[in-house]
Design a protein around this nucleic acid. Sequence first.
DNA 1: ATGAAAGCGCTAACAT
DNA 2: ATGTTAGCGCTTTCAT
Lengths: 336, 336
Amino acid sequence: MASQREIAERAGTSLKTVSRVINRDPLVNTRTRERIEAIIAQIGYEPNQAARMMRSQRSDVIGFLAEGVATTSSSIDLIRGAQDAAWERGKQMMLFNIEQGASSHRLADSQLTAFRAEAVIYATRYHQAVKLPQSSVPRILLNCFDAEGRHTAVIPDDYGLARSLADVVFARGYRRPVFLNLSETIVAAGLRASGISDAAREHGIDMTRRIHTAVEEREGHVTFVADRVLSRLMQEPEDTRPDVIICGQDILAMDVYFDLSELGLKVGRDIAVVSFDNLDPIASLLKPGLSTMELPYYEMGRAAMMMAIDSPEGPAETLRLPGRFIDRASLNAPST
Amino acid sequence: MASQREIAERAGTSLKTVSRVINRDPLVNTRTRERIEAIIAQIGYEPNQAARMMRSQRSDVIGFLAEGVATTSSSIDLIRGAQDAAWERGKQMMLFNIEQGASSHRLADSQLTAFRAEAVIYATRYHQAVKLPQSSVPRILLNCFDAEGRHTAVIPDDYGLARSLADVVFARGYRRPVFLNLSETIVAAGLRASGISDAAREHGIDMTRRIHTAVEEREGHVTFVADRVLSRLMQEPEDTRPDVIICGQDILAMDVYFDLSELGLKVGRDIAVVSFDNLDPIASLLKPGLSTMELPYYEMGRAAMMMAIDSPEGPAETLRLPGRFIDRASLNAPST
DNA sequence: ATGAAAGCGCTAACAT
DNA sequence: ATGTTAGCGCTTTCAT
């Protein structure tokens, strides 16, 4: 690949003038600029990023450490949002899939240090608290937070998400909700339980005994046990039997569709289902389509990247982003 | 961050000796090496990749252009496979999500040129033929191929996959298969239809009129129409009615589960279903679990990266990788 | 508006 | 086994 020197020779100018044209410095004669730009286009020159980094002492590289994120389809939007934002700002995002605490984490860290990354975004699959080893590179946490609050974090407003989801449910006239929650070890689980409980209270409904954990973990392997919970609940007399099932995530909701079908119940007619995620393409392909509270992953990714670029060393703050309710047929008005 | 010069000063050696230690050159006195290594560990030195690139004229960067890949959960394994392989070989993979023919493609290309990437892997969501603009960087195609055969390509052996899937189906005793295929514009669709037809013929079964397109595209939006096809087929008399439905992909299979349920049929009891993908977590969460032919995405990603590293400029060849059958309850032996 | 010189941090090539 | 020198391609600094 040609260098600026070669262009300068061809154009009969100095190196510096070429550099000015490339860096859009306005202090260049228009005719000179045009001549140089023509040569650049002709020989297909691209500036050498390594040389630029070295001399300017700015890498324009932002690292993105994805703890299992890229294996989970919904959280890919975290990556897309971050990359789009990086691009808009002329930054280069370097993505690494890592496993928590594993050697892949250290390897990624040293690669990023080698590239003199200006900041690193650390993203997790689930909203959780993390404890990270010290690092010389400023870090933004995405979908997770530092228990000691020392890092800027971008997380979903799980409490608010749950509250507004519950508000929709009650506004439609449902009065006997059940919340099938994720494992209590997950931060979002507690926040959502609170959000739903508070919204319910305002409608005179007590969520105590209406919240069940529908997930079991054994040996690190996760299984849904919604079938057990539901077969018990749906046997209750009609006036106490649930009229709507709120699920902690879309794949749990999918499981619930099948469980209800086993019990001879049809979603959208006999019972309503809502959830959290808007997982593509499951939520839209379930029949009937699943009404669900979309998590703001794309916006979270964008926000984290903006923080990483604009104030990597800024004071630690926590951004909680709101969701968006996606209305599909699984939450028709109740028949009873 | 400290430089090699600083280390050299502290160790009382020349710059070059430090460089030798860092690059594992054996021609260094053990005691000198240890002294220098101690200093490196103490000050947490990491070599400057930009300087290294510049001097050595080797970037160790391999680009990965993902055409919509990272939005589709199964094809993420393409990325994981490639990244793992890159890492093992001490290469840095730079990932870009792009849209085909869009400005994002050009932007990614120029970024990769700026980093002097040694090769670029171009990956697509679906197995397809592509026509790419000229590029100065050697390119490996992943999950797609150049119609003129000018590039090395790594693709799934869709014909073979379909044949072995069909062999399992017939070995289990099914005799009245239907293949609900993807859009005929997809390369895999034709290959699979051939594979299944050839396998069927060996069992004395004629697949003509047993293959249906279950997908409709209008205005770029894809919908499944398996419900229409199935409601017609399942009305046939018992001796010609399908006993197994082969689906072109797992999400279509999911759609089929719901359609069959509407028709009062239970998968695994009244009718069998098999598919292609092994899409996580859908395939395992369907009830009963979906028997499916897993696509070798992880291995394909690895293979493409190995080609990119070892013979980026090598003669164009096409690697067709085999799949693996995942056996779950949706393909129990037929009841009739 | 343009240019000359220096040097970022590293390694290739060539001593010693 | 170790050191010296040069220079990769660019931008910063300082002149003109």
